[in-house]
Write a protein that binds this DNA or RNA. Structure first.
Lengths: 192, 192
DNA sequence: CCCACTATTGACATTCATGTTGATATATCT
DNA sequence: AGATATATCAACATGAATGTCAATAGTGGG
């Protein structure tokens, strides 16, 4: 849990410090949920005082925003790579679902969306997102349906990351059926 | 904002009090988002002391859980009615999306899901949910695909309620396209 | 009318997160 | 080595939310 248990004072470069902090924050997001994404807790787990965290990010909101930016960028660039490598749709979907569900990507996105701060126009990742959209639309050939399909996939991915397990449990979907879902969806999307 | 501005002390039946509190809480959820769902704020808007709210519900978490229970029940029974009236799938989907998006239904569900408290086994609405599942599976005739379809619709509905607007904005979906989405989805689901 | 019951309330205590400040330690440069 | 820059920290101040408790005030029954 605690990173720095020794008594010595550690001095990092600002980049190292920010990177460490965001890494710990990401871990806490996965382990504790959104409540774990506060300055005091993150600082404690990172083995530093909370004043240090504030020194680097300025405020709690800014830290969260930085984490969102990093996670979004990682996610989108990963999807972009998969698209450029001409992977089959099923693989891309699987990858997308996996990345959103794992580690709290989708959760953080949802949480910020619920706070009406997400997808701010100034977001650096917006360009990447539109790039992906263009790529998909270009590959599919049907721009009208493409929009609806992308919308469907996007909201489904978000919903699955947030409460996919709970809903699957309610419906009574077993392990293998759950694993097959991305493939199933990709197949039926291609038929449209 | 404030309900009781007079100086007189109002005495309600426990049922009236709970109903009023949950109503105010629902309003605050729509207006202020999840942050508005705390005892102090709700009590203030309801024109009573926060001690009264605690008296009726016991704790903040219990109040939230009660609100979730009520909203879920309202939502599911509405869907059940639509199904029993043999409305066309497009109408049912439209209705589902509308109810989840409006008034913060989906938001509260998502928030509680993020807190890993939602869909608790003891939930009274679980029975209603399985009823709906059986009804749909029975209507569709194909139990294998039915599960996947229901799963898709459920997670899509959740995702749309949380960040549908933001994603639609990113993709560049206009007003009419957005309105047509439920119909579009219903049509392609029926073809499966 | 009087009494029991309880919904309601103000005041208090507690906990916790956030943010500020001045001092200190450490890396880098000359 | 000495000086500079700044990353780090302990301590403090603040504010918000939660929960407890004893007292008060409506309500209904005898």
């Amino acid at each position: 849990m605690n990173v720095n248990s020794g008594g010595k004072r550690v001095r990092r470069t600002p980049e190292e410090a920010k990177s460490l902090i965001l890494s710990i924050a990401s871990d806490r997001l996965s382990a504790l949920g959104l409540e774990g994404l506060n300055i005091s807790g993150v600082a404690k787990d990172a083995g530093m005082s909370h004043a240090t965290v504030i020194h680097h990010f300025g405020s709690t909101g800014a830290m969260r925003k930085a984490l969102l930016e990093k996670m979004t960028h990682d996610l989108l660039s990963d999807v972009m790579v998969a698209l450029n490598h001409h992977e089959e749709p099923a693989r891309v979907l699987d990858h997308l679902f996996e990345m959103l569900s794992h580690g709290g990507h989708g959760r953080l996105l949802a949480w910020l969306a619920l706070d009406q701060q997400a997808f701010s126009p100034a977001s650096e990742s917006k360009g990447l997102f539109t790039d992906i959209l263009n790529k998909i639309a270009e590959d599919s050939g049907d721009p009208v349906h493409a929009k609806q399909i992308i919308f469907l996939v996007a909201i489904a991915a978000m919903g699955k990351s947030i409460c996919g397990d709970a809903i699957a449990g309610l419906i009574g979907i077993n392990e293998t059926e759950a694993r097959q879902f991305p493939e199933w969806l990709a197949e039926h999307i291609q038929r449209i």
